[in-house]
Computed example of a mutant assay.
Amino acid sequence: MNLLDRIRMELDQFSSAEQAVAQLVLKDPSGFQKMPVTELAKRAGVSSPSVVRFCRSLGYEGLSDFKLKLAASLNAGVPFIHQSVKAGDSGETLIQKVLDNAIHTLRTFRNTAPAKPIDKATQLLAKTIAKKGRLVFYGVGNSGFVALDAEHKFFRMGCTAHAYSDGHLQIMAASMLNKGDCLIIISNSGRSQDLLDATQIARAAGASTIAITASGSPLAQAVQVHIPADHGEYYEQYSPMVSRLLHLCVVDVLATQVALQLGDSVQKNMARLKKNLIDSRYTK
């Protein structure tokens, strides 16, 4: 899913003024990125601050940041059609389809992902770790394995991190959260009732909430920080591929940014961990 597709999906969530700006983007995206804010406001029939608010409502820092991501999205080449594998595909065709789908999804995310929600999520995670709070990762089905990977990445920083993929355990764990803890939900569709219920329980307890999920989904609207993870794969596909890779990459970005922000304390923990692992290897 490119930036224009995301704007179309979220159109109903904008204010009337922001919708006017969105329609201007959709009507002439190339022209939009070339015009100054005063001209954009005039053509949309809104104020200049409304143009900036539209960009920020999508998670971008402002108009300049939005224009950069819009240009990258438009310059990505011919629109990509997600290729589903078929029973009659040869080994060579399967390799090309699977890898092309993954490469396109990651490239699109790189070109269009707003930095603002990732920065906000990083701040919440770093604050939780610094104050000895708990990180709890939720995922259901395929996303449950991504949650386990996130637990593995973050507990190495020396913090308390747990992953849950069972709906009943998620409700129970959410009930045990407190102010200062952080719940991170990973979901392809963002429509799991168990995850939504657990999110509401965690928020009522005062915990911070972050979701890596599809734009426009109920879960995206239920959390404090939403990191859009959009792609061309139907979320009810029997064997999801690109969604898992995209979610893993988002977790990698967050873990790297948090480790850099926390600095020496995390680096010392990871260095000690690495040394102990090396010392435990069988060398004969």
Rank of each mutant, 00 (worst) to 15 (best):
T93L: 14
N111G: 07
S73Q: 01
V52N: 11
K153M: 12
F109P: 04
L277P: 04
I129G: 00
P114F: 08
T122Q: 13
K69W: 00
I212V: 07
A229D: 06
A259F: 02
N142D: 04
L196Q: 02
L3H: 00
G31N: 14
V21I: 13
A17K: 08
L94V: 01
I118V: 13
I210Q: 01
D65F: 07
S15F: 10
R53N: 13
S64C: 09
S90V: 01
F137V: 09
A44W: 08
S84P: 05
I278A: 15
T128H: 02
A41H: 09
Q83Y: 04
A17N: 10
M35S: 15
A130H: 04
C159Y: 01
A204T: 09
V51T: 05
Q96D: 07
Q19H: 07
G206H: 10
S16K: 14
R191L: 02
M270E: 09
L3G: 00
P36W: 10
L63F: 11
T213W: 01
A121N: 04
L169C: 12
H168F: 09
L260E: 11
K274G: 08
D194N: 11
S30L: 14
N178C: 13
L24N: 09
R8A: 05
G59A: 07
D264H: 05
F137S: 09
Q200A: 14
I186T: 08
A76Q: 13
K132A: 05
S217Y: 00
Y60Q: 08
K275E: 15
Y234E: 01
S175A: 14
C182E: 08
A173S: 15
H82Y: 13
L135R: 06
Q33F: 08
E18M: 14
T160M: 06
S47Y: 04
L124Y: 09
D279K: 13
G216W: 00
S243A: 05
L169R: 12
T108R: 06
N269K: 05
T128L: 06
T93N: 09
N101G: 07
K268I: 14
D12S: 15
A173N: 13
A207I: 05
V266G: 02
G263W: 04
A204R: 11
D252Q: 07
L74A: 03
L195A: 02
G158W: 00
E18L: 07
H162K: 11
K284S: 12
R156S: 05
P29G: 12
V223G: 02
N188E: 06
A211K: 03
K97A: 03
V146K: 06
V46A: 11
L68T: 12
K268S: 14
S48T: 14
G263R: 06
L148K: 15
T160K: 05
M35I: 10
D264C: 03
C55S: 12
K116I: 13
D5V: 03
F155S: 13
A174T: 05
P228A: 06
V266F: 00
L26D: 11
Q257R: 15
A211C: 06
L277K: 13
F14Y: 13
Q23D: 10
V25G: 11
G216H: 03
K132W: 00
R107T: 07
A76H: 12
D230C: 07
P228F: 04
D149C: 09
A271I: 05
R134M: 08
F145P: 02
S208K: 09
A147V: 09
A222S: 14
K42E: 15
